[in-house]
Amino acid sequence: MVVLRVKDLVAGYGNLRVLFGANLEVRRREIVAIVGPNGSGKSTLLKAIAGLATVFSGRILFDGVDMTAVKPHERARMGLAYLPQTDNVFSRLTVRENLILAGYTIPKDEFEERLEEALEFLPRVRAVLHRKVWALSGGERQMVAIAMAVIRKPRLVMLDEPSASLAPKVAAQIFDKIVELRDELGLGVVLVEQNARKALEISDRALLLVAGRPVFWGPSRKLREREDLVEVYLGVA
């Protein structure tokens, strides 16, 4: 049931350490939120799990498998979908082409079926299937990115600030979709968000990172009740 387990992770870039001892656990049908002030290492944590940052010590276990030696694109094949904040779609290609590429490693006969399933899940994407991605709105782009992840039938989806630079109404739609990832598709979801209030609302458990160190880990409900932490670290979001 536990899809991802991170133990005492110290990570960063090159020689620079940014994250000091993070602990995290994600189960199936669960949304875990990572919140905290700017620069607290939230994105770095996701990148480390995806294999795109340097890990100095600690362990990352995906479905019980130690990921230390696993290359990023292999992690992707193992069922780990990572949606970075920017550059998560091919702007110059059409939506359909993006999805074809997302399904690059899927056997051809299965692809049409998976495409259909993904479009069922994201009707908004079906509507813009033949348009070029650069012509889409921010919200539609994110939907395409999510579709690209879903089509690969991952077990864990990691999203880095999916609502960034989106209008509140559109962001709300994205959050709804994220909830559906958990409820309808039964996936594990890790969500890094600046919008802490919303993140804590939809998530089951939460990790609060401040300056690279974990300050809270537990049920999101409990974090919301900790007014001292909320006010100091999470602002008035």
């Binding site: 694109h73 550059d87 290609l93 590429l101 997302a102 490693t105 690209m148």
Partner: peptide
């Protein structure tokens, strides 16, 4: 795939 790799090689390689 070529067009994708040219536009965003890291994203392309993460897709296999």
């Amino acid at each position: 795939a070529m067009r994708a790799a040219i536009e965003n090689p890291s994203l392309a390689s993460s897709l296999g």
